[in-house]
């Protein structure tokens, strides 16, 4: 049975969904936008403006819809949702990028030491009550020590020792310490150096370098009015908090120094004016050094013997 004519008639019923253009259309599916870069046809524009505009728009939108319908979909209660790719057209932002929150002192320390941030639950399990209780706040677990009905008193306590008050004061002190640290963090984050300050520092550094860059290291230079005396470099120490990597590296460097595998620094001043000990050793050992000489002379110690050929 020949079905080709049936198929042909079926196809004729549906109009084509293909769009053919000289220059392919630029489609930005992320913004649902299509740009038709073909030059506008003058004749059809003059002939019937509205029809021409509608026909061009139809072609463009058809192409856009074809690409939209080919996108992967995700099902949802309302029906399938097409997953749009990020837009290719770049539009300017309305506001600058959000600034990252400045890290607290503890966060800096934790990052340097590689300490993982763990989120603490607001509730803790109380073994005695057999239920979850608040860690802090109303009836909080942190007030347990001051609200318990029986207190332990140390043997050497004063007469007026009040254990409940002691526990409460300790808790209040922790709270105020935390508040103080919070304020310090806030002031530190606000006092972060700006670009202008950085530039000022840079200029000062350059100026200081130029001031000592003459033959007399600036001793006989003409002083300007209000010019300050150059300050020397202050001693600097390693910071208390460092990253694990740098700490490991410096410790290993120290260990390798103790190990003696590396070249030892030369000791000057061995011997007197007549004898240069270093030179003499080199001559005696035929350039092998003092260690090799020592091994040669006293080479028959027990350890060496034991490691011979079996």
């Amino acid at each position: 049975m020949d079905v080709s004519d049936i198929l042909a008639s079926q196809a004729a019923k549906h109009k084509s969904v293909l769009v053919e253009k000289d220059i392919p259309l630029e489609i930005d599916t992320g913004f649902l936008t299509v740009t038709d870069l073909n030059p506008i046809d003058n004749e059809s524009y003059e002939e019937n403006l509205e029809d021409f505009l509608q026909a061009t728009a139809r072609d463009g939108i058809q192409a856009l819809l074809t690409s939209l319908f080919s996108l992967p979909t995700k099902s949802s209660p309302d029906g399938p949702l097409a997953q749009l790719p990020p837009p290719t057209t770049q539009l300017p932002r309305a506001k600058p990028l959000p600034k990252p929150k400045p890290p607290t002192k503890w966060e800096q320390f934790a990052r340097a030491k590689g300490i993982q941030q763990t989120k603490r639950d607001k509730k803790v399990w109380d073994e005695e009550k057999q239920e979850w209780v608040a860690r802090w706040g109303w009836n909080g677990k942190n007030k347990e020590a001051e609200t318990q009905w029986l207190h332990e008193v140390p043997a050497n306590a004063d007469v007026g020792f009040d254990p409940a008050k002691e526990a409460k004061d300790a808790r209040k002190a922790r709270v105020s310490k935390n508040e103080r640290q919070r304020l310090q963090n806030m002031s530190r984050s606000q006092g972060a150096s700006t670009e202008r300050e950085e530039r000022k520092k840079d200029i000062d550094r350059t100026l200081a370098t130029t001031r000592v860059s003459t033959a007399s290291m600036g001793k006989f230079d003409k002083k300007l009015e209000g010019e300050k005396k150059l300050r020397g470099v202050k001693r600097k120490f390693e910071p208390a908090e460092r990253s694990i990597e740098s700490e490991k590296k410096s410790n290993l460097a120290l260990l390798s120094k103790l190990d003696g595998t590396h070249k030892k620094p030369r000791r000057e001043g061995g011997g007197d004016d007549v004898l240069n000990v270093r030179k003499a050793v080199r001559f005696a050992s035929k350039g092998q050094g003092g260690v090799a000489l020592g091994r040669k002379s006293g080479g028959s110690d027990g350890k060496q013997k034991g490691r011979g050929k079996r």
Binding site: G30, L32, I40
Partner: peptide, 27 residues
């Protein structure tokens, strides 16, 4: 584009597409 279409979205319901704004230049 900023006026009509500036918001970035990551998914869209295809049956909800019903509005077209066309901007065409003269020759």
């Amino acid at each position: 584009m900023d006026l009509f279409n500036g918001e970035v979205i990551d998914q869209i319901h295809l049956t909800g597409l019903e509005h077209v704004i066309s901007v065409t230049l003269a020759p």
